[in-house]
Design a protein around this nucleic acid. Sequence first.
RNA 1: GGCGGCAUAGCCAAGUGGUAAGGCAACGGUUUGCAAAACCGUCAUCCCCGGUUCAAAUCCGGGUGCCGCCUCCA
Length: 492
Amino acid sequence: MPLQLYNTLTRKKELFEPLEPGRVRMYNCGPTVYSFAHIGNFASFLLADLLRRHLEYSGLEVLQIMNITDVGHLTQDNVADAQGEDKLEKKAREEKKDPWEIARFYEDAFHADRKLLNIRDAHRYPRATEHVPEMITMIEELLAAGLAYEAGGQVYFEIAKFPRYGILSGNSTEELMAGESGRVESDPSKRHPLDFTLWKRDPKHLMQWDSPFGRGFPGWHIECSALSRKSLGEVFDIHTGGEDNIFPHHDCEIAQSSGGKDQICARHWLHRRYILIDGKKMSKSLGNIYTVGDLVQKGYTPREIRFNLLIGHYRANSNFTFQGLDSARETIRYLREFRRNMLELPARVTPAEEIQTVASLSQERDRGFRAGLDDDLNISASLAELHAFVSEAYKLATTEESGRLAVARLDAWDQVLGVLGERDGSPDASETTARVGKSNWTAAEVDRLVGERNEARARKDFKESDRIRDVLKAAGIVIKDSPQGTRWHAEG
RNA sequence: GGCGGCAUAGCCAAGUGGUAAGGCAACGGUUUGCAAAACCGUCAUCCCCGGUUCAAAUCCGGGUGCCGCCUCCA
């Protein structure tokens, strides 16, 4: 089934085919490590993760690169003073640490949260600060090609030399000028007000590097151009980011990376639209900028957060709500329960017809699941197939063998979704000393309590049996009575 | 002011011309000592107005509301 992806560049869905058959090269705009990444940032990284997982599920090899922006940027508050101040620098001053320490701290935090959210490791996470020589080389090339110039101590890219400037955002230079409305103070030495910085000199900046253009630091957009070219080549398959990256960041990248040629560095551009929080945009004044840590502190699990961020389409303003997190919790619980129930089916001989039915259903639903994601990552359609299959399996599977077949299907899908995790939550008899869930008991001790409860039930002492069940429940252990006996498992 | 996107049930969310997927919640029922789990059933005419069409949530025009970019904030 052919994969169709919307391309910001052409504003339509296009058939996706990697330049090199069977092998996809993808670049993702990564985090700026001057503070904790919030769930909006992770929504963007999750788009990359879902795409990567689906490509791999489809049998393609993926080379994924995500940059770490540790140089920092000009802050809005400081634009006015014309000197500018690096965000990392500001943070460093506030926290009285050096910017390199700050950057490393938040980079570590990013990876910790990323792993919590079950986002697969990219193949490389290149740091901007470790690729300044590559950026300098690129700037030199642009100067040599006459696409850039030095003025007023800075190096600028001359947009007049790249007629297609603005192609990604759909802006023409004239429109951008019209929209500018005098809000931006332009450096008078620039040839055109929209020419953007490649190399900047500012003695107050803490992070400085020597270069042929003087001691300074790289401009705002050059890092992604240099990093992507180094890791993936001049033209690669996919470039992702948040919708705010479209202009100016990605348009500038395209201009720089063209090298004066009529080529655009990436073929497919995918942008995650902003998520809203309770229908409102994230903002400091509303206090709704949540980090993974914030939500975990409120009692939600990383998988619930992942699922809630994943179920909306990446090109829609999905609404992130606490009710949605509760909904995600219930769905995950339901699916884990399904796994347990399937694996606990009686181990007896399965009629050939039943196996056949479950197997063909599994294949049919998998086709639907893949078709959904193939349609520009329409995960809602895929999840509908998943739910249909679970419901059907409940009705059809009567033995452990059928159950295992159904679970295999679910687990395969979870390679793409990544929300169920590896553990199935069932008690492991071999771990006699391990505590069960959040309780203080071992599995053997829980078994003993369950036995006591069943003795009470047998003599119809329901007051006592309910008391024991309440005690277990309070400890996070769920009891299920069935004709085959009583089963229990830890919550979740 | 310029460019772009969105508007579907209490909540989340598919569906781009053929008569509204799926999930959560809720309610009724089966099952259970009671539960839990599972199962069965109920629950929307698609922001408003006008137009095109045999037929529109889906196309066109006009409103209203929300979101994004135009100042590196995914």
